[in-house]
């Protein structure tokens, strides 16, 4: 009896795991089933349209790429800088403690709240309008906590002995960080940053808040241009009842997932490559 109970429990737990995995497979299959037929070079290279057969994701794709690059430029220096400060410079004071609690709290704030901030601060306050820059600033704030936390972990993983070796030679703090800590932590930092950016890549809510438009028949030429992005285009298509638009949404999802997969793969490759190289 006891044996049966134990076995039943084991298979119950196993079943839960299998269900979770099957849901993932189902989700992928559903998008592939409906969207694969609509994937084509023309789809990648056409602007959105009222006519599903002519519609494509050119503006959304370029918008997303622009957005990622700008977001990276803004958030990576800020995030890595903050992580360096917290790990290497900050003394354990109340201020440091507040900053750290604050960061972990910010990581739990819903993305749409960042959208509200972006709307009030960047779109209206700084009068950036519904531009790429406003979107990138909003996204940068959104992923900053995750960038900081993952960079901190990477920096913390650098052994203390390397810092001691450097200081003992008469290096200054910044020389130690710049020449030894950062190079050693770089693979970890890069991995974390890429994963954070991939989170931004999939976010739609904050961009809707700041008013990233959906019907845009041009690719942005600069950071002050209006834009749309892949998740927004997908949202727009998915919210239309007509079946063809649903298929377009699925095709858009496939492109988005492919991009995310590529980013994740890059992160994993970087991690594995350097993990092998550096051993303490």
């Amino acid at each position: 009896m006891r044996y049966i109970k134990g076995e039943a429990f084991k298979y119950l737990c196993m079943a839960a795991t299998v269900i979770a995995l099957m849901l993932l497979a189902l989700l992928m299959w559903d998008a592939w089933d409906k969207g694969a037929g609509w994937l084509s070079l023309k789809f990648l290279n056409s602007f959105p349209s009222r006519f599903p057969e002519q519609a494509g994701i050119k503006s959304a794709l370029w918008g997303s790429i622009w957005l990622m690059i700008l977001t990276a430029i803004i958030s990576i220096p800020l995030g890595v800088g903050a992580a360096i400060y917290l790990e290497e410079y900050a003394r354990r004071t109340w201020l440091t403690r507040i900053i750290e609690i604050n960061i972990s709290n910010l990581a739990g704030v819903p993305s749409i709240v960042y959208g509200i901030l972006g709307l009030a601060l960047f779109v209206r306050g700084l009068m950036l309008g519904r531009s790429l820059l406003a979107g990138a600033l909003t996204m940068a704030l959104l992923i900053l906590p995750i960038i900081i936390i993952s960079s901190q972990e990477a920096i913390r993983a650098v052994p203390k002995s390397i810092r001691e070796a450097s200081y003992a030679l008469g290096s200054t703090k910044w020389q130690t960080v710049r020449h030894h800590v950062l190079p050693a932590a770089l693979p970890g930092i890069l991995t974390g940053n890429i994963l954070s950016l991939s989170r931004a890549m999939g976010e739609a809510a904050p961009l809707i808040m700041i008013g990233a438009l959906t019907f845009i028949a041009f690719t942005p030429a600069g950071p002050f241009d209006p834009f749309t992005a892949l998740p927004i285009q997908i949202f727009n298509w998915a919210s239309r009842p007509k079946a063809e638009f649903q298929f377009l949404a699925a095709a858009g999802i496939l492109v988005l997932l492919a991009l995310l997969l590529a980013m994740n793969a890059a992160a994993i490759i970087i991690r594995n490559k350097y993990q092998r190289y550096i051993k303490w």
Binding site: S161, I162, E164, A165, A168, L169, G170, H180, A184, W280
Partner: peptide, 19 residues
């Protein structure tokens, strides 16, 4: 401290060469 450590070298318990 930077000038001081230039004058006073240190060797640690565990060899810690830079990678």
């Amino acid at each position: 401290p930077v000038a001081l450590r230039k004058k006073i070298g240190m060797v640690f318990q565990k060899p810690n060469p830079f990678p």
